[in-house]
């Protein structure tokens, strides 16, 4: 049987959608399972396969009740606030400090006498800091933080995340600034603006998309981090991921309904970001790889 061009096109498109739908199921099922587990009663969790609320189990908000308004309320609020404060401020700091350095690396020529380093070498040194496995450098961190009394403090965690994100910011923003036309800055400089004014009034506004992408990326790292929080905090500055991990390792077995609710609270902001500003995130993820 002969198929017309049109039909085969349609078939192809249909197949495309089927395959993508399969991946979407694989991709989203774990999240779906989190959602339904968070509204299951303990009995429904341990009863066997239960997939659809109202159809094969009766949903209940008991876990959410306890997590948001009940016995976990204070702890959840504290950890969530901790996470939010540390993630937003460390990302902001990293972006400010890092974009200045990134800008400078594209507009000035540096030479480090002893090492004979030029701009590219400096940039490489900076990015190589990001490539270290955290587990490798965490021990001296602990010692240094203990010495400076930064263990389990907000300031300490903000510092740790800022430093960890900084190389990434420099790297990305350097690329970004290198792609901007310099004519505008040049004319501003000739008109008597200082370099710093040119940077804040002309370069930064032009770079907003890049800055947002980088900021979100840093935010994501700090928000999701587990290792630094595990090593450098124990109570006061403890974060949401720490809470989830702690709940999961209780000796009488994990209470999955609570854990699911907490997990959802932890990932909600990131999912919102993924859905609302996908293009920025895509840019942040891809820009490091592709010019």
């Amino acid at each position: 049987m002969q198929m017309s061009m049109r039909q085969s096109q349609r078939l192809k498109l249909g197949l495309t959608y089927v395959l993508l739908a399969l991946w979407a199921i694989f991709c989203l099922f774990p999240i779906y399972w989190l959602i339904i587990t968070s509204v299951k009663l303990p009995i429904a969790v341990f009863q066997g396969p239960r997939y659809l609320p109202w159809i094969d189990f009766q949903p209940s908000l008991h876990a959410w009740q306890d997590v948001l308004f009940g016995r976990f309320q204070d702890e959840v609020a504290r950890r969530w606030t901790n996470s939010a404060i540390m993630a937003t401020s460390s990302a902001a700091l990293a972006v400010v400090i890092g974009s200045m350095a990134g800008y400078a690396l594209t507009r000035f020529q540096y030479f480090v006498p002893g090492l004979k380093w030029r701009n590219n070498d400096l940039a490489f040194w900076i990015i190589s800091q990001r490539m270290l496995p955290p587990v490798v450098i965490i021990l001296p961190y602990i010692i240094m933080f203990r010495f400076l009394r930064l263990i389990d403090t907000h300031a300490g965690m903000i510092l740790a995340y800022t430093v960890f994100n900084l190389p990434f910011v420099v790297w990305i923003m350097r690329d970004f600034f290198a792609g901007l036309p310099i004519d505008l800055e040049e004319s501003a400089l000739i008109d008597g603006a200082s370099r710093f004014q040119a940077f804040t009034r002309i370069v930064l506004p032009l770079s907003t998309p890049g800055l947002i992408a980088t900021y979100l990326f840093c935010l994501m790292f700090a928000w999701n981090d587990y290792l630094f929080a595990l090593m450098l905090t124990f109570s006061r500055a403890s974060t949401m991921p720490m809470y989830v991990a702690g709940m999961g390792s209780q000796s009488y077995g994990p209470q999955w309904w609570y854990l699911s609710a907490l997990s959802l609270l932890t990932i909600a902001p990131m999912i919102l970001i993924a859905l609302l500003v996908e293009r920025y995130i895509t840019r942040g993820l891809v820009v490091g790889a592709i010019k």
Binding site: C27, P30, N224, Y226, M240, P254, I267, I271, I281, T282
Partner: peptide
């Protein structure tokens, strides 16, 4: 939608898969 797994905390990913 596909981006969601990249965005979520490894802690949560780990817990999900334990379940």
């Amino acid at each position: 939608l596909f981006l969601i797994p990249v965005m979520i905390a490894p802690v949560v990913a780990g817990f999900q898969f334990r379940m």
